[in-house]
Design a protein around this nucleic acid. Structure first.
Lengths: 263, 263
DNA sequence: CGAGTAGTTGACATCTCTCAATGCCGGTGG
DNA sequence: CCACCGGCATTGAGAGATGTCAACTACTCG
């Protein structure tokens, strides 16, 4: 059921502070990862790259880190050094208004990349924290751009990643700007469903890793409204909801209620 | 007053359909532009680049195009070939929901870049049209990425542009997700004010190029609410509003009402 | 001059928020 | 082992903000 338990026996290393950008692998290194043998390679950074290009990625041997539930990967204002690929677990990114209001800007699951927002000003504009015990690959951004100079395809990969992030935010803008509560929650659930499906999990049954308040912040509504909308969907026999466990009964019904390509 | 009339005597060429990506300049070429002599160079693509790098940009000799008010630069689904730098005028970009609902995703003025959203999938995700007679530089994206392979700084420039776009959208998400009507309109006006100021125009007095409905769509509210909020601001002596002409009386008051870094 | 578009304003409907009470866990400590 | 506590979720009632519909004005363009 839980993605976290499926693979939680991987390593025991905790690197919380930013790791030094060591290129040479020391004799006894922290756990390193190669893209070519990663089970997420088609979804993640190397998606769409040619084998020789992926080999060049392998040369970089990315550091892995574990982040416990509730710990932050980076905060607003932190120096931008890495982008991060989620291996296992779930992250949330959020923005802060001066008066403390929070806006969740995204949830990230295995195979997704986080941290691209830092490239514009050299520091992160958002904060990102783990919603459950999570493991990531830290990809030194400078090395990636170096690689882009020599590997022709890499330039495109970076651009595509960023552009994909722009598209993702487009969808959220659409949602926040022109949809009501029902449509927002339906869009959110359908989007999650698709992303789980793409990773081989059930598209109809999953466990939410975020609270009602976090969903609400992401969707621009209050937690009570999220809760009421869940109840309404349940009464309309679209879903079965038990706290954070969701079972979609009528997927087409949900889609009919709202058809949009999110992400 | 109007930026359009200031410089409308530039050229008379109209290229509406996507121009062929002609690299070799024909004997009698359409008007070409060099970044190094452009009055917008500090705000636009070459912003922050070194002189030798800008010289490389000059070699590309971008085509200019004029777009009349109401005409579109590209539509959702069009092949992604160019990014566009606004020289004169104003553009709006928008996204479409299946049922026809529109969400304005941005307004673009001189020195700003448009079209980056196409890089992810090779086709544009949004449509962009001119709100007044507008002139742009068409920058062939493929040439830009070619250049990135040879000019070390160019890779960073592209990434920074995209990341800036991500930040811009962050602000809009913040706005749509966690602000009320007053705050939205205040943020919108302050943002415009800053952008005009950065271009040497008045930060206190300007002419809106977009309708109430377009502002509303951008801010996630109905046109009537936009209108009422304008009236309220006027009654609070924050603004003087005469249709699309805005004069900010109490800039600090507006900021106090809402402090956020947008764009 | 007439039609059409854009903007404003009013009255009312509706949706979402706010505040408050309650229930349901899971963890902790007596 | 049980009582208690804190965090999360649900639900209700009422308030407040924004949307809807409609009327009216001012302009612009033919």
């Amino acid at each position: 059921m839980s993605a976290a338990t499926l693979e939680s026996n991987v390593s025991r290393i905790h690197v919380i502070a930013a790791a030094p950008a060591a290129v040479e692998a020391p004799a006894v290194a922290p756990l390193k990862t190669q893209c070519s043998t990663c089970h997420l390679r088609d979804l993640c950074l190397p998606g769409g790259m040619s084998m020789p290009d992926i080999d060049r990625l392998d040369d970089m041997k990315f550091n892995r880190r574990k982040i416990k539930a509730g710990q932050t990967l980076y905060r607003e204002g932190d120096r931008f050094q890495f982008i991060y690929a989620v291996r296992i677990g779930t992250l949330k990114s959020s923005l802060m208004l001066a008066d403390g209001r929070e806006q969740v800007s995204g949830f990230h699951i295995a195979g997704e990349l986080v941290g691209l927002d830092g490239a514009a000003q050299g520091s992160h504009a958002s904060a990102t924290m783990a919603l459950e015990d999570t493991e990531i690959c830290a990809i030194p951004y400078a090395h990636l751009t170096d690689l882009a100079a020599s590997v022709s395809g890499m330039q495109h990969v970076i651009s595509r990643l960023m552009s994909r992030e722009i598209l993702r935010e487009h969808s959220l803008m659409m949602l926040l700007g022109s949809m009501n509560a029902d449509e927002r929650l339906a869009a959110f659930l359908l989007n999650l469903s698709q992303r789980y499906a793409a990773r081989g999990y059930s598209e109809r049954e999953f466990h939410l890793r975020m609270s009602r308040a976090e969903i609400g912040s992401y969707l621009g509504m209050k937690l009570e409204t999220v809760s009421r909308t869940f109840t309404a969907f349940q009464q309309q026999r679209l879903l079965e909801v038990d706290k954070r466990h969701i079972r979609i009964i009528d997927l087409d019904g949900l889609k009919r209620r709202f058809e949009v390509r999110v992400h």
